[in-house]
Structures are given as C-alpha cells and as structure tokens.
Computed example of a mutant assay.
Amino acid sequence: MLYWLMKYVLLGPLLRLVFRPQVEGLHHVPDTGPVILASNHLSFSDSIFTPLVVKRRVTFIAKAEYFTGKGVKGWLTKMFFVGSGTIPVDRSGGRAARAALDTQLRVLRGGGIAGIYPEGTRSPDGRLYRGKTGVARLALESGAPVVPTAMLNADEIQPPGKLIPKIARVRIRFGPPLDFSRYAGMAGDRFVERAVTDEIMYELMELSGREYVDMYAQKAKSPPANPVPREPVPV
C-alpha cells in the first residue's frame, strides 16, 4: 500500500515533473510475467528512476543499512527506497549473495520484475565494468528473460557522493529481451554463467555507449595493496 501511495500519489508524480524522464524501448518490458531488468549502475538514484518509468512494480534489493539511517537524510533515503519498491537484505554474512538471489527468485516466481545491477556496485567513473555471474544464475534458475536497461545520464544528475541531485532530464534506454532458455538446467556451470553474463554486459555496453572495462568495479574502487612510492620532485 505504501509503495503504491508513494509511486502514484506522492513521490512519483513529483519526480516525473522534475526530472521529465526520456525513455526509449519501454515496449521491450513485458506487460505480464517474470522478467529481469539488468542495468548498469551509475548513481544512487538508479533504483528510483527505473521503477519510476516502468508501469509494473520493479523490485530491487539494497543493503539493510539504507533503511535504518538516522535523521532527515536517513528518513529520506528510506522513503525513496520504499517508494521505489526496494527490499532490504542483510548482506553482512557469508550467505549474503545467496540470500539476495533467493529474494529475487521469489519475486520472479511470483510473476514479478526483478531489478539487478550485474556490476555489483556503482561505477566509480561512469564506465561499464565486468559483470558478476549472479545475474546469470538468476536468469538460469528462474527461466525469466533479461531486459538490458541502460542508464544514460544518471551520473550527471546525481554523481557519486552527492546527496542532492541536479535538475535535469533523466534518460533511460531498454533493449530487446534476451532469452537464455538454450541453457536450461545448466545453472551452476561457471562457464555457462560467465558466457550469459558477458552477453548481458555486451548488450549494456551497446545500449549505453559507455566504455567497457574487463575488471570488477569493486576492485577499481579499492586502493592498490602496495602503492608505488613517488619519486621526489627535484627542486
């Protein structure tokens, strides 16, 4: 009830008025049945803009800490995620990845739309990074088609680390559904899952026009283990 109130009465109309979404290929999202929206991840607001433009409910997952923040910022963050249909998941334990997968599988088996970021984290510089194979496992275990979803300028509207987004027109592009039924029964095969993931990432690269980097985004964010000392500059 709170989700529908936020999307269609309170939050949704305001966001559509302010950010005037420009959407391409929305017809690729099926009107019924399970589907996976696999998106590049440029901004904190990605999980808000995508559900805003899709008529059906889109369920993303997010770490539980987003729902427990203190003060005005914490309350606003929680309301944004509640309004976009995001489900909190405890990702602190060793079984966190499986818990996240099971949550999305329940959504798909109920005929819903599961949103996922194959990169696993926001891009540190706007480029598209290597996908993790969780998206392939989700597709193979559920049998749901995958609709590649390209966020085109969310990092310009709300760059990483910025709380207040800039007022600009958000642009999103959906690609044709990808069918992986030819791999039915092969979930758990790491070679198949890598092939499926790479196919999804290729489509995201084509749709988004972003440079692809064959490295995990989390590694790109981490400082080098043994940084090379700089040589003194002669004076």
Rank of each mutant, 00 (worst) to 15 (best):
S84I: 06
Q158V: 11
D214Y: 06
L163P: 05
L15Y: 06
V58F: 05
V29H: 10
Y216M: 07
D189F: 11
P229V: 13
R20W: 08
Y3E: 15
I164Q: 02
S92I: 01
A99R: 14
I36W: 01
A184P: 03
G12P: 01
G12I: 11
Y202V: 06
R169Y: 02
F19V: 12
A136R: 04
K70V: 04
E24T: 11
L152W: 08
P118R: 04
G12R: 13
L15D: 11
S43P: 13
G161S: 08
V228A: 14
S123Q: 13
Y3L: 14
K78P: 01
Q218L: 12
V233M: 06
R16L: 10
G126I: 12
T86A: 06
I167R: 13
V107M: 07
L52V: 12
A97P: 00
I36R: 02
Y202L: 12
P176A: 06
D46E: 04
L138N: 03
V58T: 05
L14H: 01
S208A: 07
A195T: 13
M1A: 14
F174L: 05
K162H: 05
D90L: 08
V9H: 10
Y8I: 12
L105G: 04
G85E: 15
S39P: 10
V235R: 14
L105H: 02
G110A: 12
P176H: 10
P13N: 13
P13C: 12
R91D: 05
Y216Q: 08
Y212C: 08
F191Y: 04
A136L: 04
L163I: 13
G131H: 04
L26G: 02
S208E: 12
K132W: 06
Q104D: 06
L163Q: 12
K162G: 01
I116Y: 01
N40E: 06
K70I: 05
K55R: 15
P232Q: 06
S84C: 10
V228H: 00
L5P: 00
P234T: 05
Q218K: 15
G188H: 10
G33N: 03
F49W: 02
G134V: 08
R20Q: 05
L140W: 03
Y3Q: 09
M186E: 14
P30V: 09
D102I: 02
Y117I: 07
T121D: 10
F180I: 07
G175K: 01
P232Y: 09
M79I: 11
T86V: 15
D46K: 06
I172G: 01
Y66S: 00
V54P: 11
K162S: 03
P177W: 01
P160D: 15
A100D: 05
L76F: 07
G120Y: 00
V170Y: 07
G94T: 13
K132Q: 13
F180K: 00
R122D: 00
F180M: 02
S142W: 00
Y3N: 04
T86D: 05
I157Y: 05
R56Q: 10
P51A: 07
E119F: 08
L178P: 04
K73R: 14
W4F: 10
N40P: 04
T197M: 09
G112R: 08
Q104H: 09
R130W: 05
L204R: 02
Q158S: 12
R173Q: 07
R230Q: 15
I87S: 11
G83T: 10
L76A: 13
R109Q: 10
G94S: 07
A150F: 11
V53H: 05
A225L: 14
G161A: 09
A220S: 15
R57L: 08
G85P: 15
V23L: 08
E65D: 12
V192P: 02
I116H: 01
G74R: 02
